[in-house]
Design a protein around this nucleic acid. Structure first.
Lengths: 240, 240
DNA sequence: CCAAAAGTGTTCACGGTACACCCATGC
DNA sequence: GCATGGGTGTACCGTGAACACTTTTGG
């Protein structure tokens, strides 16, 4: 029981952190943003971006601060995942972590597919995308957090239109389908997919086409947030 | 920024609590177990059973301890709901609450439908069931927690067989149907319901019948946990 | 004219829903 | 014998799944 420091309480208190599983999409796989630790414990291991919750900030504010410092990006989609509180999850002492997961359009960030170079640095720490199937050894119980986030993401894209968050604001239906195929780990029928997605009425077809080499140009679409909100209010749900 | 107490840290730490939304089923409505507070803040207001997480106990252990002290019952079904951390949710200072929800077979407890008498007492606090549609003013943000738990429960019974947890281990199909009707707030077709529920193959029909006054006796069923686990592993899902 | 991806409709099977009558019992 | 809830089967419709060819472009 420590006597150092200016903040004292009649009972011992756990430390509280937020950790965030940030997903991004490369050409053909789902990736997670990891930070290489520059201190003990787990020195030089990779871990999730996260940190202690400051006493004067909201949980969401904490997450936003962490995300901005690691990704230099605002307005990221994120939501709370689960709270982890096992006694031994942090060797420094009892620490409870409120885990979040976030989806970013990773085209906005340098992406490193082969795993050679670092993509960005924040302070002196390395920050890098790692394919979810080729994760390194992770600090703390972060492997568990990622597994939990993956499960949630995979099931959630089936009933909520959050997949769009992984794409640029304008995208082709083929790209969207690829996204679903990567996340679900199986192929989807093109005609059925387009029929289904379009029939939900939350995508706006644009008068713009993407030229992608030597093929027929593909029409671009945009997710219409307000149409979706309206459907939600009518109890009308998204489903893939 | 206190200096009292034996537990000191270099940075201020939020207090951490668990709170549990305990659902029970009376004859014709869903109820929540509430505790009348016997201290400030919110003296005499009703609130959720819960309390501070002890430094040497798991989150689940905390919940189990709280549940046992309030309901005197072990082996209650519960799961984590959401973590609430708004800055102003506790007037005593920054407090983060990890909310859980639990389902109990309230036949095991004295139930008080009309809201007159107390059902049980733990220490000196009153503990009582309250219909979810007739809740009193609540302490802290517990109204929010209950709303959140209700939403989760209503959606979850559609895809996981947790409804059984609200019933005694042996129950009739009519009772189960009533449960779904109460939770969903709409009537269900008897034949379709029975067809659906039985076709999932997770209920065992018993050679036992319930005599319920001047009617034809109803067959009793039991939820078969292991059959369900097996189906889960096969990726075979429960759905209503 | 060839390669490569975009785009487009129909058929079939299954599951959800709607619906009405007989059964067993206690009083 | 009557009131009360228990118990059962069928027909229809809509949605999900399977499936193949034409179009547009660059090289």
């Amino acid at each position: 029981m420590g006597h150092s420091g200016a903040f004292c309480y009649p009972y011992a208190r756990p430390a509280v952190t937020v950790d965030c599983v940030v997903f991004g999409l490369s050409e053909d796989r789902l990736q997670v943003l990891l930070v290489q630790r520059d201190e003990e414990p787990f020195l030089q291991h990779w871990g999730l971006p996260g940190g202690f919750v400051r006493i004067e900030e909201d949980l969401e504010e904490s997450v936003r601060r962490e995300l901005e410092s690691k990704t230099r990006c605002k307005n990221i989609y994120f939501e709370q995942l689960y709270t982890f509180g096992a006694l031994d999850r942090d060797p420094r002492g009892r620490t409870i972590s409120i885990a979040y997961f976030a989806l970013v359009n990773s085209a906005s960030y340098p992406i490193d597919d082969v795993g050679g170079e670092l993509s960005q640095s924040s302070g002196h720490k390395q920050v890098r995308w790692h394919g979810v199937d080729t994760l390194p050894q992770l600090a703390f119980d972060h492997g568990k957090l990622i597994a939990c986030a993956l499960e949630r993401l995979r099931s959630k894209i089936m009933y909520r239109p959050i997949g769009f968050e992984l794409l640029p604001s304008r995208f082709t239906l083929s790209r969207l389908q690829k996204l679903y195929e990567i996340l679900l780990g199986r192929e989807l029928d093109k005609r059925n997919f387009r029929k289904k997605i379009l029939s939900m009425g939350v995508l706006d077809g644009l008068e713009a086409w993407e030229q992608n080499g030597a093929q027929r140009p593909a029409q671009l679409y945009r997710f219409n947030q307000s149409k979706y909100q309206q459907k939600l209010k009518q109890g009308d749900f998204f489903e893939v």
